[in-house]
Structure formats: C-alpha cells, structure tokens
Design a protein around this nucleic acid. Sequence first.
DNA 1: GTCTATACGATGATAGAC
DNA 2: GTCTATCATCGTATAGAC
Lengths: 194, 194
Amino acid sequence: MAILFVGGVVPRLTDARKELRRTQIAEAAVRCFSRNGLERTSIADITAESGLSAGSIYAHYRNKADLVRAAAREMLDKRSGAIGGYAAADVPPGPDELLARLIAAIDPAEARVGVQTWGEATTDPAVRDIVVDATGRMRAMLHDCVTAWLVKVGHHEPADARELAAPIAHRVMALYQAELLYTALRTPTEETAP
Amino acid sequence: MAILFVGGVVPRLTDARKELRRTQIAEAAVRCFSRNGLERTSIADITAESGLSAGSIYAHYRNKADLVRAAAREMLDKRSGAIGGYAAADVPPGPDELLARLIAAIDPAEARVGVQTWGEATTDPAVRDIVVDATGRMRAMLHDCVTAWLVKVGHHEPADARELAAPIAHRVMALYQAELLYTALRTPTEETAP
DNA sequence: GTCTATACGATGATAGAC
DNA sequence: GTCTATCATCGTATAGAC
C-alpha cells in the first residue's frame, strides 16, 4: 500500500529535504553575516560554518547574491510572524505595549544582519524590494493591531479607528526600526579570529 | 618680508592643500558609494570619479577602510552642523518643527550612504565608533534645542525642561533616522552603466 | 547531491619614473 | 605629489569524479 504513495510522498520528501538544505545553508550564512557583514563573508566562510562544500551551496543557490536575498527574506519574515495574531486578541496591545513587545523580541545578531540588509538594499534592487515589501507588510500588521486596539479599548468607530491608526502605526514602526539600529550598534561585534 | 612667513604660512598653505585633496577624494568616494555601495566601490571607480590616480589616493589615505571612515565622518558631521544654532534662537523650533526641518534637509544620495554606513558599523569597530559618536552628538543637540523650546515657549523651569526633553529628543531622533531609511529605500538607485 | 580541485576575474595595494 | 604599470591575493563560480 505504501507503494501507492511513491508518486505523491517521495517527491515531497525530496522537496522537503531540498528546502531543509536551503534553510540550513541560509542559517549558516546569517551567522556569518552577523559576524563579518554581507560582503566580507566569503563562500569559504559559509562552507566552514555549514559543514558543506562550495559545490553543494551552488547546487542550492545560483550565486552569492541569491543566497543573500534568501537570507534577507527569511530574516525579515521571521519578525512579521510574531505580531500576526496580536490584532485578533480580545484585548489587543496598545501602541506602547506593542512597541515594548517588539523591542523585547529583538535579537542582537538578527539586528546586525537586519541593518546590513538595509545597507545592501540601497544598491541591490532585489534586496530593496524584499525590504520594502517586508516593511510594508509589518506596518500593515501594526496598523491592524492599533486599529483593533482603538476599536476594542478606545471604543472608536472602525472607520475612524483605521484613519487614526495610520500615523500611530507609522511612529511605532519608526521607533522600532530605530531601536533595531541602536541594538545593532550597541552590541559588541564578536570578531572571528583573523 | 614675505620670506618671514615661509616658516609659518607656507606649511599651512601646504596643509590646506593637502586637506583640500583629501576632501576632494572623499567627496568623489561618497558619490561612488551612493551609486554602488561601500564595498562594491573599487579604487578604480574612485580614480575615475575624482580624476586622480590610485597612487595619489594612497598618498592621502592609508587604505580603503581609512577612506571609508573619513567619508563616513565627513557625511555625519555635515548633518550635525545644520542644527547647531537652533537652540540659541529666540524662538527655538518645537519638536514637530524640528523634525520637519531635519526631514526637509535630507538629501537622497546622502541618505543612501548614511544607511550604508550603519551597515558597515555593525562589523567595522572604527566606523561603529564614528556613527555612535555622531549620533550621540546630534541627539545632544536635539536635546538642547527641545530644552530651550520647553523653557522659552513652554515656560518650564530649566531643570524640569532638561528632564522632559530627553524622551522627546529621543523620539525626534528615531523618527528622523527612520525617515532617512525610507528616503534611502524610496529613491531609485541610479545604476551606472555596467 | 556532494565533494575536491581549479580557472578566471577583480581588486587592493605598491614600485619607481617624473 | 602624482602618474603608469604591475603584482599578489583573494573570492566566485565551475568541472568533473564519486
């Protein structure tokens, strides 16, 4: 009976393994980026960190820029996921609480790579799109959350709430990003042995 | 009589010329950085942009990292200078006006290099110190300005004003930095011909 | 798919003439 | 101080065996 699943399951397993390798490589890359920066990280560094070989990496990513894009996307998406459910809560967090939670969830290593990603976005259009897209989605989530808070706690009309929420969400986002920058700069860069 | 000044003036003129060359190189470098980023800008790019040669550049800067640091410092200092006199005005700008002026003064090209500098600061300790230092001084200026506004317009006691001003200055700074980021990301990267 | 070994290009930095 | 020409190094990406 298991043979019936060969056509369906086995390819999925293969795909799953493939995807697993990709994330394994991407996560190793992120650790390297956090230490040495996007451009100063060589493929050799990533092979050492991941335990894989150069050939294996290029079997999963077309080139280094492709790997950087994947790492950036993975990292930025991780953040958005955390606040996805806030708006649906019975008592949604208000702006101050929202900001406090966001700041508390900041990981120094991720903050460094995040800021590096901003820098890369100024010259690589693909990275730029990724950052703008992720930023936009996160701001939309904050907007939803603040709107829900204004409605459920502040007892505003939904239409009014959406309008009032926009500048508040904007400020929460800005303050969060600034804190991300401060964290990235505050944390001592643990240099690898030269 | 002019000969009497040889020992004093001529060296100063020489030093001035030397410094002029340094800024000439640094400004050309900033233009390159704005287009291609800190790491993707080669010395050859800077020679082409400045009209000088590689040898000349290395006569004024020990290496590329040194040049990056100088460019970063020059750029960050330019910003601080603009708001230096605000606090002394008879009617200092309030937080909103202050932020509006800061945002209005943002130059897209400088914004890009500024954000790139943040990224570089996460891995290069020297650049990190430069950014942290410049950020701290700018925040102090904002603090002075907000304090003066609270005293002269809000009629607070100076001691109270200084304490009240701290979180306000912090927020103005954060909102400004976020706007710097948005400008850097919003502006279409004018690619040089490949 | 994964490895080792390698080719090729790019780039930072220097040497030496002027 | 500035140039031209050059070197040496490093890093990406590929080829081919397993």
